[in-house]
């Protein structure tokens, strides 16, 4: 018998902001839907360890999808003449369109990095559609520290430079095997996609002025950030938590910006109690 992993991949069609999208989706497990959002310039493969962990999949239906332009999801028709730029509204509507297309009832939504930011927007705008949100490496504001133009230009290899920019976001303690797998996804990303995502992460998605309006009684908010994250730092995570009354923040020691993919064994020690708490306390 082949040694199949429990992950099943398929394609789903949905319309987002007038664009017909062919979306790659992977899932494993049964139970409460847990939608997982990948980081900027990456794809669903970051969540493969969660999808192979029975401690999670015995209770949760873990679902991850590649955003348009990412992984095995196509860019929209006419992409050749567009500059990809992710905005808050487009990101929020893409996630909602996906959840509708999959007929998911009040999922838990967990995202990392820009995914960790957008779940806060979801919690603010659409709390009643969600059971809870988990922001991994997600703050309501980060400060840019390099020019995005370096990420997409003909005299610098886009995949190599994107991976090299984020390589220091992996903690030094993380196993080499998973460090380089995490970076491989960045090397495979389409031209200009990481740059287009960072438009949301660094500019359009800031909302520290609105995050205090999130009602955690309607949608619980969990924040988990890695000690070695240099964009969503522990300090920015704690500042975000202080603005979102009732949110719960954890700093994960010895982890960087990609907890689920860079150190899956360590990450599960932090995420399992959160998932257990949601399962046990949130209706």
């Amino acid at each position: 018998m082949p040694e199949f992993e429990p992950i099943v991949g398929r394609y789903v069609r949905l319309n987002v902001a007038g664009d017909d999208c062919r979306i790659h989706v992977e899932e494993a497990g049964r139970g409460i839907p847990l939608v997982c959002l990948h980081t900027a310039g990456a794809d669903t493969r970051q969540y493969r360890h969660l999808m192979c962990d029975p401690a999670i999949t015995d209770h949760y239906r873990v679902i991850a999808f590649d955003l348009p332009w990412h992984g095995k999801s196509n860019p929209p028709l006419g992409w050749r003449d567009r500059e990809y730029r992710l905005t808050t509204d487009l990101y929020v509507e893409t996630i909602r369109a996906f959840c509708r297309a999959m007929a998911l009832a009040r999922p838990v939504v967990m995202g990392c990095s820009m995914g960790g930011r957008v779940v806060l927007h979801l919690a603010l705008k659409h709390p009643d559609e969600l059971r809870a949100v988990i922001a991994l490496e997600g703050a309501d504001r980060v400060e840019p520290y390099y020019e995005l133009d370096w990420l997409h230009r003909p005299d610098v290899h886009g995949g190599e430079v994107c991976a090299a920019f984020v390589s220091g976001q992996v903690a030094p303690q993380s196993p080499d095997e998973y460090r380089w797998e995490t970076l491989w996804l960045y090397m495979q990303s389409g031209p200009g996609v990481f740059k287009g995502d960072l438009y949301f992460y660094w500019y359009d998605g800031h909302f520290d002025d609105r995050s205090p309006k999130i009602d955690t009684a309607r949608c619980p908010v969990y924040l988990l950030s890695g000690e070695y994250d240099s964009s969503c730092t522990p300090e920015r995570t704690e500042a975000t938590a202080s603005r979102i009354k009732g949110s719960k923040a954890t700093v994960m020691e010895g982890i960087g910006h990609f907890p689920m993919s860079e150190n899956p064994a360590l990450f599960r020690k932090y995420i399992l109690p959160v998932l257990d708490e949601i399962r046990g306390t949130v209706r």
Partner: peptide
């Protein structure tokens, strides 16, 4: 732990022609 982390923290600086640095980061 990393040059880019040091830049983000404001404890390192880079100057000059950054193109070869970026091409081989």
């Amino acid at each position: 732990h990393d040059l880019w982390a040091m830049l983000a923290a404001g404890i390192a600086k880079i100057d000059g022609d950054l193109l070869p640095l970026m091409q081989n980061l």
